[in-house]
Computed example of a mutant assay.
Amino acid sequence: MSNLTEETRKVARTWFEALTSGDFETALNTLDENVEWINYSIVPGYNDDMKWIGTVHGREAVLGTLQIFTGAVDVKSERLINLVADGDQAFGVIDEVSVVKETGVEFHIEFIQSLTVRDGKIVRWKSYTDPSEIIRALRGDKPEEVAV
């Protein structure tokens, strides 16, 4: 494994351990001051119920989006289930169970976070998931019971 890959893996592991344990100070300290944070693309009328999504730049802007998220959603569990690092790129798969505070409806998702690491800091972060479960919960729609 190259030194670059080892450094990327170390930064990514610190990010994911801090994130999944709720240690936002440590998590934010892994981000470059001018980080590019891409949390989905907004599609008006579809996923814009998720007020924390979109692209922002800088650690303070990221903190703002995280505050919007944690104001709307109570994270019950979040765990890293896979981490791959190569060169300055890392990809983590996260399993999350959360409840929307306003509706009381739970959602369960898996999502991928793509990280680019330079000089020991995350300079680019991008998230990928199917947001349908989140949107359903935000709108207060409970999941259908599945007949067996």
Rank of each mutant, 00 (worst) to 15 (best):
G58V: 01
R59M: 01
E60R: 05
E60M: 04
V62I: 06
L63D: 03
G64A: 05
G64F: 00
G64V: 01
L66F: 12
I68R: 00
I68V: 04
F69D: 00
T70W: 07
G71E: 00
G71V: 00
G71T: 01
A72C: 11
A72E: 13
A72W: 11
A72T: 09
A72L: 15
A72F: 10
D74L: 15
D74A: 14
V75T: 12
V75E: 02
K76I: 11
S77Q: 11
S77P: 05
R79C: 02
L80G: 02
I81P: 00
N82P: 04
L83S: 03
L83Y: 01
V84K: 04
A85K: 07
D86C: 14
G87V: 01
D88C: 13
D88G: 10
Q89T: 13
F91E: 03
F91H: 12
V93F: 12
V93C: 05
I94W: 10
E96C: 08
E96L: 09
E96Q: 13
E96G: 02
S98A: 15
S98G: 14
S98L: 05
V99M: 10
V99F: 09
V100R: 05
K101C: 02
K101N: 06
K101R: 15
E102I: 07
G104V: 01
G104N: 09
V105H: 01
F107I: 03
F107N: 11
F107A: 06
H108I: 13
H108W: 10
I109F: 02
I109S: 02
E110R: 15
E110K: 12
E110G: 14
E110Y: 13
F111S: 07
I112A: 14
S114T: 13
L115P: 12
L115A: 09
T116I: 12
V117N: 05
R118W: 05
G120A: 07
G120R: 10
K121C: 02
I122L: 02
I122G: 00
V123M: 06
V123T: 13
R124E: 13
W125E: 07
K126N: 11
K126T: 12
Y128G: 08
Y128M: 14
Y128N: 12
D130T: 06
D130P: 11
D130A: 10
P131D: 10
S132N: 12
